[in-house]
Amino acid sequence: MNLAFDVLLGIALLLCAAGVFYSRDLFRAVVMFIAFGLLLALVWVRLDAPDLALAEAAIGAGLTGVLMIDAVAHLSAKNAHHQGAQFDQTGARPQLWSRILPVFSAVIIFILLLGAIWWRPDAPVSLPDLVAESLPESGVEHPITAVLLNFRSYDTLLEIAVLLVAVVVAMALKPDTSEPEAGNSKDPILHGLSARLVPPMLVVGVYILWAGSYMPGGAFQGGAILAAALVFLKLAGFGIERLADSLLRIGLALGFIVFLTVATSVMIGGRPFLTYPESVAGELIFFIEAMLTFSIGLILFSLFSQAPPPVAPTSSLQGEQDER
């Protein structure tokens, strides 16, 4: 019974992916993509990974979906209907090799991977055992949080840096002209709903952050929910993107600053980089996570809100802003 469900789920996932790639217009593709994300969240549940299910639903399906819809909405009708498996608007050169080569390479990739999965040797090292062994010393009870914020916290530090770099690039891309966006449709019902729904969303976000130390949840999932709440507010017409620039910057970087400061200050006591003193490890991790949640929420939100406003595309070169 379970296996049948899994098989169906897997096939649905593949069909959904095909739908994303070959649906007629892009809006449909985005909807399929969101459905793909939700199905994938189910798959994570089946794979015994509730953390990933949370993250996938909030980030993979939710935020990415919103980002994509926003982008598609700005395309002109002609470009949004740009048909799938064509080669270009010019429609030129449907050469034989350009059709056979992709099929051929996709088949090769699939066969190679099939073999790699099928004839997999048994791993000589078992990290889960090591994680379970060291879990009591990590300061948290949830193994995934322990891996993310203690055993492999260096990865997480760099990951926050990756997020920050994305925001910096977004800021750099923002046109200098900062005229306020005109007429964010202030729909009374949407407005009312978001005013009532955002507080519980924030509560859920904080709960998930807090739960992360002993059960599925943590900074990333909590941050994603925070970001979703902010996106919601923006869409409902609350002018929250007009935060003071300097305040926003500090908010964005706060998690990273705290993380880096804690990581470095332990070295004064002669400990290695990113070590938490055992007596306060749990508290320190929670503190870092709380700051990270706040920053991640802001970062993900500003990746959405910093997007260039809908400018009518100019095909002539005069639209170029080379003068700077």
Partner: peptide, 20 residues
């Protein structure tokens, strides 16, 4: 993660003068 960080920073530097 390091590779991704390099990529993002490098791409960001390429597009600094955001022309076509």
């Amino acid at each position: 993660v390091g590779l991704e960080l390099v990529t993002f920073a490098a791409v960001g530097m390429v597009i600094l003068s955001a022309n076509r």
